[in-house]
Design a binder for these strands. Sequence first.
RNA 1: GCCGCUGUGGCGGAAUUGGCAGACGCAAGAGACUUAAAAUCUCUCGACGGGCAACUGUCGUACCGGUUCGAUUCCGGUCAGCGGCACCA
Length: 823
Amino acid sequence: MEERYDFKKVEERWQRAWQEQKTFKVVEDPSKPKYYCLEMFPYPSGRIHMGHVRNYAIGDVISRYKRMRGFNVLHPMGWDSFGLPAENAAIKHGIPPAQWTFENIAYMRDKQLKRLGLSYDWDREVTTCLEEYYRWNQWFFIRMYERGLAYKKLSYVNWCPSCNTVLANEQVEQGLCWRCSSVVTHKELEQWFFKITAYAEELLSYCEKLTGWPERVLTMQRNWIGKSIGVEADFTVQGSAEKLTIFTTRPDTLYGVTFMSIAPEHPMVESLINGTPDADQVRAFCQRVMREDRAERTDEKRKKEGMFTGAYAINPLNNERVPIWVGNFVLMEYGTGAIMSVPAHDQRDFEFARNYGLPIRVVIQNAEKNLDPSTMKEAYVEEGTMVNSGPFDGTPNGAGKEKVADYVEQRNIGRRTVNWRLRDWGISRQRYWGTPIPIIYCEACGAVPVPEKDLPVRLPKDVALTGKGRSPLSESQSFRDTTCPTCGGRAHRETDTMDTFVDSSWYFLRYCSPGESVAPFDKKAAGYWMNIDQYIGGIEHAVLHLLYARFFTKVIRDLGLYDGDEPFLNLLTQGMVIKDGAKMSKSKGNVVDPDFILTKYGADTARLFSLFAAPPERDLEWSDQGVDGAYRFLHRVWAVVYKNIERVKDVKPAGSEARGDTLYRKTHLTIKKVTEDIEREFHFNTAISALMEMVNALYDYTSDGVEEQQLPVLRSAIDMLTLLIAPFAPHLAEELNASLGNKASIAHSSWPTYDPEAIVAAEVTIVVQVNGKVRSRLTMPVGAPDREAEAAALADPKVKEYTLGKLPKKVIVVPGKLVNIVV
RNA sequence: GCCGCUGUGGCGGAAUUGGCAGACGCAAGAGACUUAAAAUCUCUCGACGGGCAACUGUCGUACCGGUUCGAUUCCGGUCAGCGGCACCA
């Protein structure tokens, strides 16, 4: 053992050893309990950032800890390697996307992740842009197509007129293109969709069962799915056979309808205005609203505007005639695209009615009975009693909702229904670097799925990428032109590729059997490893990836491939890495490069700092001095072992005979504390602080020299410290472990257990309070009866001073902790 | 506007079931070692006040109130910050 800790030498040595000995390779072993620990896999952008370091350090501590606890741990890593940046690099630098991607993967894996000493089974590496992976995306697509879960429809998409391409919702930031900041418009295009709405109810109800998820993530998912229960009601159009169907969550206000509003895109607009005097103006109004871009259309400050169509509807409950308006605030995508307007009890309708002089009628009266349309300043949306509502007058409006719904259903003028905010998942992308959608369009047979035997549909390599024009694949004639698998006639392939979120929706199943070649994964292997006991990643995926992956898992279950309902049992959303009060980003210039930290301080320091500075779910403020502190601590550990190693090398560690020794007690207290902190919500920061306390105790213990009879206790302290620090600083721990004469890797050593007898102190400090304020402290033997503590407290001179001879009214004794005297 | 989260020293944070507020680390100050510096080691370190001193008094966990012998912790209200959703009928 060298005097000075040379992290570079030590870390390289052990990284090589782990790789050569395949220390972290795992296979299914039914005799051992399994543990599947997964960190969200990265996009191979070229460089990892501190957020990755933090994410993987957290996952690695958990994996290494569970491994030492005797679990068979699956801890894999891979690459979410399809995506637009590769295409952009190709356009900008003329490098093929595949080359760019694989070079990045090689650098990130070999020069960055492996340097961090992460305990992955690299034999299970999964790379989504490889044929062996994306062919199964195509396979899933076809299975879903057969079941009606993948379908094509004409729909409005986000379109960037400058980049000349479709953008995903997540690529639209405040209505602007993320790449060029152009205003995003709408465009109607034929797109492929996955029918995630078929699982809306289950995705929502299973949120209850995800007890290992942070509440805020579940809330975000619930909001995103957005279930509203209500009623659809049919209003007849006066002088027409057509019916206008509306959706409402407030059937209790049906008698308060004073007008109707429909979306400008509503298919009935034309028939309603046909022949009316203002038809042209209404048409022009609708055109104008529909031309507005996304940002304008959803601006909260936009004025509510509308026009009277000239047509009237009949309220099926009271047969009143109400005017039908077109409103710029009515959304075609939600409900039926038409609403009943009840200005007295809906703020938007209220503003609209005031604006255009439409009547307002109160049908829910408040407790003070003072609601009057002529004096109302805003809509009344609280609880109340139904009035002006025919047979329902006097009914509390909560109960009224159900009664009116019953009534509507009995009279066959409407029905109970549920509306969802969740939309089907549009997966078509007009991009090159993604999974080709396995569909062939035949002039005779229409859309035909590619037969399974013809999979994969390979991504062609000879495509010129310009960033302009249509889908790059449509420019490749050899790709596009093909024959129909059904009739053999002339046909062409679908040239759009899949959203990259498809890739990440099932990769965790692939890790269970990464070499599988006849199915996406082996059912038995997945049965052994799933579900994921701990999933770790950033909060930014709270809705998108985590919702898509839940959806895919349920589809895969229904395909009979996997027996489970949910993929992720426990979810840890780690906080961001912050510097100078802001998230690290190139534009802010506050980025700390992991390579620099690894070179200057080493992996163990980088890991230790990012685990110590904050608990995992909270944001972590980067501190250069904090990194120095972590570095100093590792050197302190090394130095105290180095100073004593020659003397303890051949000493047998102390056992229960050493109970009563201060260091022996501290050692066992530390085992208890570190174990409990890891088990309790992964509070690594306090676990590490306990290790620091133990090291401080070791310095105290050895500062004046060590007697011969103290050596076994010292030896056991050093042994235990090495084991406890192993998940956090694995290189240092391996080196100390080897220096102490152990041959096997510490990664598979058993986690220590503490001796409950050893942590019991002979004496405890009892806090003495007078009226709840601390006035004195007493030292009492452990287990002293309450009345002895009480008597000792009352006899205390300080206590006497504060009680001034008055008799105590009450004395509260908390055994072993506190005596409170109330006077 | 709705939903969620968070407010503790100069800073990051700790206090696990309502029982010693500030563990551990950083920064700062003093000292030891050194020709000197770095490194290392030791000590001090919430605010205000009293004492030569060991020590000691009061206040203090965003703010106001409540429950309790006792509140950073529980309850009600207010404020601030962060995040998500948002014309969803």
